[in-house]
């Protein structure tokens, strides 16, 4: 299982969390590369740019999306991303990762077809590894 995933993406404004996840990915060698966005707007701009350049090399295999972020939160990102997602050929897996345990957030996240699962922070290391394995298979 050498670098099964080429590019993972984290959209989250919590610097500490992002740092830790980065460490996990490095230590466990879960992905070759990692791109990080502080909020939905930055991530969306990135995806729109890829769409215009028609180069899908820099598209991530997997996205971890936080909900509560400044400027553009996870919900707004989701509703925008849905519109452009089908223009990509690459299969992108998306997980919502939030510290919110509000069942309404969970319901709402599951109402998006493209959301594979709703992960509640903190994520367990074992779970995290499994997600990467499953995504490869």
């Amino acid at each position: 299982m050498d670098h099964p995933i080429e590019l993972a993406c984290i959209i989250d404004d919590d610097k500490i969390y992002v740092n830790l996840v980065k460490k996990i990915i490095e230590i466990k060698k879960l992905s070759q590369n990692l791109i990080i966005f502080k909020n939905g707007k930055e991530a969306l701009d990135y995806f729109k740019a890829i769409l215009e350049n028609v180069s899908e090399e820099r598209l991530p295999d997997i996205i971890f999306l936080d909900l509560n972020m400044p400027v553009m939160d996870g919900w707004e990102f989701l509703s925008e991303f849905v519109k452009i997602k089908n223009s990509f050929n690459k299969k992108i897996t998306l997980y919502v990762v939030s510290s919110s345990i509000d069942p309404r957030d969970l319901e709402r996240a599951k109402s998006f077809n493209m959301v594979t699962d709703y992960l509640i922070k903190p994520i367990e290391l074992k779970r995290f590894e499994k997600i990467f394995e499953r995504d490869v298979a």
Binding site: D14, I16, Y17, L20, V21, K23, I24, I27, S99, S100, I101, K121, P122, I123, E124, L125
Partner: peptide, 13 residues
């Protein structure tokens, strides 16, 4: 919760 979950992540690491 976001802080406590970070703490828990650190302890795992």
């Amino acid at each position: 919760r976001s802080h406590s979950s970070n703490l828990s992540l650190i302890s795992q690491l």
